[in-house]
Amino acid sequence: MIDHIDSKIIALLGKDARMPNNKIAKAINVSEGTVRNRIAKLLKKNIINISLIRNVNQMDNPGIAFVGLDVEASLKDKIAMQLSKMPEVRFVSSLMGRHDLMAFVLADNATELSHILYQKIASLEGVQFTESSIGLKYFKYDYKWGRLLSEAK
């Protein structure tokens, strides 16, 4: 688990991961060595990951969909893995309630999105029903949080 010094470092790096160690040290009143060690530890334990995030709003015409899937029970894990392998599928989770699986899709445009939804996802063996919602506007997205799954890379 993390303590309050870790939390402060995570908050600062969550705004700008290139903030120099000496500036972080000054901002939270600890030594530069502490900052260096803490960051190394957070990275090593995969509690944080330094990432470059590209701006979806800079894409010309992105197609984004939130897809709920109801699937054959025995194939749930397999279907989740198949979805995870698709590069346009950005998020896959099994669910309790609502649907069996949930996936987020980001495609370059609406044509590609419909191809992924109807040709690639709905046609997977064991998929019984899909409910897709198309993203229209983004009110909040706290990119500082995620799940760091080493096996996904």
Partner: peptide, 20 residues
């Protein structure tokens, strides 16, 4: 409200996001 709890996350990619 249609809630759900995520039981297992298989993939969570963070290289694209809407940046305000």
């Amino acid at each position: 409200i249609t809630p759900a709890i995520s039981s297992k996350v298989y993939k969570f990619q963070t290289d694209w996001a809407p940046l305000g």
